[in-house]
Design a protein around this nucleic acid. Structure first.
Ligand SMILES: Nc1ncnc2c1ncn2[C@@H]1O[C@H](COP(=O)(O)OP(=O)(O)OP(=O)(O)O)[C@@H](O)[C@H]1O
Length: 752
DNA sequence: CACATCGCGCTTTTT
DNA sequence: GCGCGATGTG
């Protein structure tokens, strides 16, 4: 049986890894060596050639996005059978398990998941109850303590909880109340998903053996970034047989701060009764020789690592382009000029990525891209689902699903204002804790007691609302209907309409977008229930936003870049204090920053650009920083300094003169036809399309144009044709002007 | 009880 | 340079 032709697709060592089936297997290899490909083919091999059923395979990835990509690639090999493979992140797999066995971990099946924000609210409430001031212990710090313990599988009653300092002891007490509160609220936090799944398996052998029996083979990608709890989970599931394959690269371990233990991968070979097969992959298939040499030199500066051989038979390619800017805006201008230049050479925008160390750095690049009317997608920042109005509606949904969700109740009880303010809620809270019931029940009890008529009426109105929403949920089994009822019946929409401010308008639009995304989800989902939708939202991550189809430049943090690859990579903000980050001071921290830089550089296939700024605005202060040590750790002969005005001359805005150009957009008449890039993907822009000729003026009236000094305007009429045509344009600020066509950018002609 | 204003601290990085 | 929370007023 050899239907897959593994030898054609994989090198000798990859084949060896794919074919090794009995017992534990470690694939330890550097960047771009085809580890992920091994996992994909191994899944196919197990099914096609070893007699495993798809549902007997569990494959764990680091992000949902990686899971989706792996599912797609598996589908190419296995067809529809691929959908039966259990493929997901640790968190999504555990969530599914916990939903089935909630009652064994002191929850009911309709439990909800608290996000970071909910968690902070809850901890703040606890700190208040304990009478601990914020100056002594901040909610974030307590949350970090709790997370750290969970990563190590230590519950609030664990003997090894750190109690060295007064603060630690305080945190340990917070931890205890926090766990109790979540249980009372029928809620889990993110870390609980792993923690309680392990607990479930440890305490209920029957359940564990069910899953052991079900999953006969386990594969794990990015294994270097697993924590203790996740490793324990894998070992429990793998059992004595240990049919488990893990792949990873200790040089790419970048989540130590989140509890990841690189020893998981380093000790793996010695951690089993039986022999552990170790396969090393040494050929890099991703990057050109110069990029690979630079990355290897860089990571070579780390002392705590296992040296790996990594070679490539690709051409040497370009050296790494480096640029020193005066300021962060100068840096962004340079990046922009390189993007345009690469585009002119025929590279598509979706093959370009801008990396930065922290989200705060994205802004200048966004501005630069917008100014040049260049499409971009920002990955992360998790903007949409953290908007106030969106979170409010989600909180209503959660409360409908789980009336005990105290955090959700506190959030929506007076949103919109309905006459139940702090004083009423404080009374309700007292009652609730005296009777050990949920806040919602406390509130209802308060209404029964002879309380002020106003408050009682308000509470009853709220109760009627909740009853209506729950009935809608039960009758229709459809999130969309429930969300619709929330927005319309709670008075939320009415209030926004009454406000009539610009901000209220934006919020309304956000709610419309939310409804749209719920609708889209519902139309695709098999199960439209509230619980399933809320699970989906909880597991959404930064990598999941943005439209995948558009040809656009990608912007993201280096952390989000793990496992991805791009033709052109910009690594920006390479300054001391920025990258490496000023918070990294121990040797270990610096080494993790260096691994991060290594991950960044190794994402590039053909072009890598390194840039830094001598000065940078930060917290409103102007910081002066030196070029990052990571730049000088790359041998000089692999680097090439670049100057800013490398932009085919000609009236370019790229001169360093600061303010004299603020608007204007990339002038499309300057653009050379793309070096022909035969489109594998279909819709690559073809400059010669008659439609795309910037001077074909038929139907230009009404279109949006950009002028270097007058900014954006609308075409009112066109006289003549070609570059000399006289175009009458209406500008919002400067009024009506007649302008010769060649000075205008016709925005809708943008090929992006 | 609702709304406005002021000030503080914050930024790593994410499932 | 901004969002959130604490604080004060109608
Ligand atoms: N045997 C092979 N022949 C040709 N190309 C390959 C081979 N194996 C992998 N590749 C290609 O090399 C690139 C890197 O592969 P992959 O993403 O699997 O590497 P990786 O080891 O997981 O990388 P990283 O650890 O950097 O994320 C991909 O473009 C992949 O298609």
């Amino acid at each position: 049986m050899d239907v897959l032709n593994l030898e054609d697709k994989l090198n000798e060592f990859q084949c060896q890894a794919v074919r090794h089936v009995g017992g534990p297997l470690l694939v330890l290899a550097g960047a771009g060596s085809g580890k992920t490909r091994v996992i994909t083919y191994k899944i196919a091999h197990l099914v096609e050639e070893c007699g495993f059923k798809p549902w007997q395979i569990l494959a764990v990835t680091f992000t949902n996005k990686a899971a989706r990509e792996m599912r797609e690639r598996t589908e190419e090999l296995l067809g529809s059978a691929a959908s039966d493979v259990m493929l997901g992140t640790f968190h999504s797999v555990c969530l599914r398990i916990l939903r089935r066995h909630a009652e064994l971990v002191r929850r009911t099946q309709n439990f909800v998941i608290y996000d970071d924000d909910d968690r902070e609210r809850l901890i703040n409430r606890i700190l208040k109850e304990m009478g601990v001031g914020k100056e002594l212990l901040k909610a974030r710090a307590a949350a970090a303590y709790i997370d750290a313990q969970k990563h190590k599988l230590r519950g609030p009653d664990h003997k090894m909880l750190p109690v060295n300092t007064h603060i630690d002891t305080l945190c340990a007490r917070v931890y205890e109340s926090y766990e109790a509160a979540k249980r009372q609220s029928n809620a889990f936090d993110f870390g609980d998903l792993i923690f309680y799944t392990v607990r479930l398996f440890e305490k209920h052998e029957m359940v564990l053996s069910e899953y052991r029996y079900k999953w006969k083979y386990i594969l794990v990608d990015e294994f270097q970034d697993t924590d203790f709890a996740q490793y324990r989970l894998l070992r429990l599931l793998a059992g004595e047989q240990s049919n488990i394959c893990v792949v990873g690269d200790d040089d790419q371990s970048i989540y130590r701060w989140r509890g990841a233990e690189v020893t998981n991968i380093l000790n793996f070979p010695n951690d089993f009764e039986q022999e552990v097969e170790v396969v090393r992959l040494e050929q890099n298939y991703r990057s050109t020789g110069h990029i690979l040499a630079a990355a290897s030199a860089l990571i070579g500066h780390n002392k705590q690592r296992h040296n790996k051989v990594l070679w490539s038979d690709a051409e040497l390619g370009e050296r790494l382009h480096c640029y020193e800017a005066d300021s962060e805006t100068g840096e962004a201008r340079w990046v922009m000029s390189r993007i345009i230049a690469a585009y002119r050479e025929g590279h598509t925008l979706s093959n370009m990525v801008v990396f930065y160390r922290t989200h705060a750095q994205s802004r200048v690049f966004e501005d630069a891209l917008r100014n040049q009317a260049t499409p971009y997608v920002v990955v992360g920042g998790l903007k949409f689902y953290s908007r106030k109005e969106v979170k409010d509606v989600l909180a209503y949904l959660r409360l409908v699903l789980n009336p005990k969700d105290d955090v959700a109740l506190m959030r929506v009880i007076n949103e919109p204002p309905r006459g139940i303010g702090a004083t009423t809620m404080n009374k309700a809270l007292k009652i609730a804790s005296a009777h050990a019931v949920s806040h919602y029940e406390g509130l209802l009890m308060l209404a029964k007691e002879a309380d002020g008529k106003r408050a009682r009426k308000a509470i009853h109105r709220f109760r009627d609302l909740m009853d209506l929403l729950r009935r809608t949920a039960d009758d229709q089994q459809d999130v969309f209907r429930v969300a619709e009822a929330i927005i319309n019946e709670s008075g939320y929409m009415t209030r926004l309409q009454q406000e009539g401010t610009h901000e209220a308008q934006t919020r309304k639009e956000n709610l419309e977008e939310l409804m749209l995304s719920i609708q889209e989800w519902r139309d695709r989902a098999e199960d439209r229930s509230l619980a399933t939708f809320l699970d989906h939202v909880s597991l959404l991550t930064s990598a999941d936003e943005g439209e995948p189809n558009a040809d656009a430049v990608t912007l993201m943090t280096v952390h989000a870049a793990k496992g991805l690859e791009f033709e052109s990579v910009f690594v920006t903000g390479l300054e001391e204090q920025v990258f490496p980050h000023f918070n990294a001071d121990s040797d270990e921290d610096i080494e993790e920053e260096r691994r991060l830089a290594y991950v960044a550089v190794t994402r590039g296939r053909k072009k890598v650009y390194l840039s830094w700024a001598r000065s940078r605005q930060r917290f409103g202060r102007l910081d002066m920083n030196l070029c990052s040590r990571f730049v000088s750790e790359i041998p000089q002969e692999l680097r090439q300094m670049s100057s800013e005005n490398a932009m085919h001359g000609r009236g370019s805005w790229a001169t360093n003169a600061g303010s004299q150009r603020s608007q204007g957009g990339f002038n499309w008449s300057d653009r050379k036809a793309p070096a022909k890039k035969k489109k594998a993907t279909g819709r690559h822009y073809d400059y010669n399309d008659s439609q795309a000729d910037p001077f074909d003026d038929s139907g230009k009236v009404g279109r949006s144009v950009m002028h270097p000094s007058f900014g954006q305007g609308q075409v009112a009429r066109v006289d003549g044709s070609g570059p000399q045509a006289r175009v009458t344009v209406q500008f919002p600020v400067y009024g009506t002007k007649v302008i010769v066509a060649r000075f205008l950018d016709f925005q809708e002609e943008l090929p992006f």
